[in-house]
Lab assay of single mutants.
Amino acid sequence: MQRVNMIMAESPGLITICLLGYLLSAECTVFLDHENANKILNRPKRYNSGKLEEFVQGNLERECMEEKCSFEEAREVFENTERTTEFWKQYVDGDQCESNPCLNGGSCKDDINSYECWCPFGFEGKNCELDVTCNIKNGRCEQFCKNSADNKVVCSCTEGYRLAENQKSCEPAVPFPCGRVSVSQTSKLTRAETVFPDVDYVNSTEAETILDNITQSTQSFNDFTRVVGGEDAKPGQFPWQVVLNGKVDAFCGGSIVNEKWIVTAAHCVETGVKITVVAGEHNIEETEHTEQKRNVIRIIPHHNYNAAINKYNHDIALLELDEPLVLNSYVTPICIADKEYTNIFLKFGSGYVSGWGRVFHKGRSALVLQYLRVPLVDRATCLRSTKFTIYNNMFCAGFHEGGRDSCQGDSGGPHVTEVEGTSFLTGIISWGEECAMKGKYGIYTKVSRYVNWIKEKTKLT
């Protein structure tokens, strides 16, 4: 034993070699072989497995989906700052455009905790909710729209109204504003409101030439003092309507412009014939205590009207009353817009006519005020429907199939267009061939041609 100890002390290297040989010859039971080890760690190889990531292109799944990435790591994937920024906006807080917040056709661009709407022409605001041009839906104005110097929408209202708090709607500024039905039992019968379409306001006024200088022999019209197929109006439903009495009662109609003036057809009036105007009328054979009678003290036909040349060209006249009318729910003026808007309103496509005229061709006159909704007829169809001249200051309205029309005794009465609950004068009943005849239409004086003249002559002093 002493000898062994001496050998170990003198030859430590020998001992180490012996131990190493023993270990190498022993069977290893701690580690699995290569094949079995792979069965336990069965993990798919990654895209760049075996390579240094710093030297390969980034992978979106590896960089940002398996674990949260930084902007720089995302930049490695896209290799483009702009594309990385677009991805980053949604990656950080989701897609803010998912709810489609942009209105009126706006395009949404996502941002971090926010979004941006790219608005089409005519709109602005956070969600493109603000109209900035009158060309689109009248700028959301209830009545009139004008573009300011910086191309912003400025709404306005006709006389007797003021802008509401929203700067879009119009509200009454006087007790009985024009064009409004205020009798409670008839307010439910107000005709369907007309909503502004998209309009090209630059070209809204037709490029028409008034044929002022045409000389033409007097034409022989049949029954051209021209509501057939209409309905009984309720008291106060058309408070701007008046009836004219002269040699015979209810020979023509008219509309209240203001307390002192009536507008009617020029062919209705004769110099030297006494005319009485009755406002607030409903049943011409009954006294309903809503009527107001006034005498006409002055007749002003349009300066281009000449019955000797043509009885229905420039067929418009103004009547001055001896005493002002007292405005109330049964006696209310009709609204008159400017030339541009009167023309736009007419193009809405349908209007209402009213009167006490004959209820059928050569038949009896109506006792109760009649009204009828009539569609506008395109000019080409209008011209083809008659052998008589249709001037540019006239328009056609009615039904091709016949059966409904204005008729004798309705002449001078109103053709009105309702705009968001307020009625505007767009025409004056003038003439036609018979009444409600198939293929024939009622012919009306186009008020847009005469609004400046009306307003100039009827100013209240």
Rank of each mutant, 00 (worst) to 15 (best):
E129L: 01
E116L: 11
S114Q: 11
H302V: 02
T389P: 14
R294V: 02
K137A: 09
R83W: 05
Y161M: 04
V154R: 09
G442W: 05
C134T: 02
R379K: 14
V331P: 01
I7D: 05
R46L: 10
N328C: 03
Y341R: 06
T158R: 01
F123W: 09
I112A: 08
L369D: 03
I316W: 00
R140L: 10
I428C: 01
D212H: 10
Q90N: 14
G253F: 05
R384A: 12
L130A: 07
K168Q: 10
R191A: 13
P12R: 09
E86W: 07
L372E: 11
S220L: 12
V77E: 07
K51S: 09
E79L: 04
F123C: 01
Q219E: 09
N393A: 05
I344N: 08
I316K: 00
T381M: 12
E142R: 04
C178V: 01
R358D: 10
T381A: 12
S107M: 07
E82S: 14
N310M: 05
P324K: 06
S99M: 05
N203V: 07
N452V: 06
F196D: 12
G357R: 14
N213F: 06
G229P: 13
A164G: 10
E35V: 11
N313Q: 13
E193D: 13
F78N: 15
P239W: 01
G236P: 04
S114P: 03
G230S: 09
V199R: 13
A192T: 13
M8P: 12
L60P: 15
K89P: 15
L321H: 00
H303L: 05
E259L: 04
R358H: 13
I210M: 09
E320C: 02
V199T: 12
K126P: 13
E98L: 10
G13Q: 10
I336F: 05
T276G: 06
P235F: 08
P333L: 00
E420P: 01
F399I: 13
G122N: 07
R358C: 04
G280R: 02
S430T: 13
K45S: 06
S220A: 08
A192Y: 11
T81H: 12
R226G: 12
A380C: 05
V263R: 00
W261S: 01
G254F: 01
T81E: 08
V195M: 08
R180Q: 07
V416E: 02
Y201A: 12
C117G: 00
R180S: 04
I428P: 00
L24A: 09
N135V: 06
I428Y: 05
Q96E: 13
P44M: 14
S187R: 12
E286N: 10
G427F: 00
T84G: 11
G413V: 07
D410K: 14
T264E: 01
N213R: 12
I256F: 01
N166M: 02
I300W: 05
Y444P: 01
T85M: 06
I443G: 02
C128F: 00
S11L: 13
V257Y: 03
V368K: 15
L14C: 07
E124Q: 07
K260M: 06
S430K: 02
Y201G: 14
V30D: 15
E420K: 07
T458V: 06
P414Q: 11
G413L: 06
F71A: 06
I17T: 04
K311W: 04
L41K: 14
Q241H: 12
I262R: 01
C145G: 01
P172R: 06
K247R: 11
C155M: 01
K293I: 06
Q143F: 03
Y391G: 08
R62M: 04
P120T: 08
D232F: 09
Y201S: 06
F348R: 09
G409Q: 12
I334D: 00
V4K: 14
T194Q: 12
L318G: 00
C157S: 00
I262D: 01
K89A: 10
V242M: 00
I429W: 10
G105E: 04
E323I: 09
N304D: 11
N310D: 09
G246P: 04
N313A: 12
L325S: 01
V92L: 12
G94S: 09
E79C: 04
F388W: 11
L327Q: 03
Q216V: 13
E61I: 15
V263S: 01
E10Q: 07
G58R: 06
A366I: 09
V183H: 06
E72Y: 15
P177N: 01
L319C: 08
N104R: 03
N38P: 12
S220H: 07
G236N: 05
Y330P: 01
P235I: 09
N151Y: 12
L23E: 03
D200V: 11
S25C: 13
K188C: 05
F251T: 07
R298M: 03
L425M: 04
E67N: 04
F55W: 08
R358S: 14
D33P: 05
H282P: 06
W356P: 04
I336A: 01
V273N: 12
E142M: 09
G349D: 14
A366C: 05
K109V: 10
S148C: 05
Y115F: 07
C268W: 01
G398Y: 04
K457W: 07
S220R: 06
W240F: 03
F360M: 15
A436H: 13
T422L: 05
F345E: 01
R162S: 09
G236D: 03
D95G: 06
K260D: 02
S220D: 13
L244Q: 00
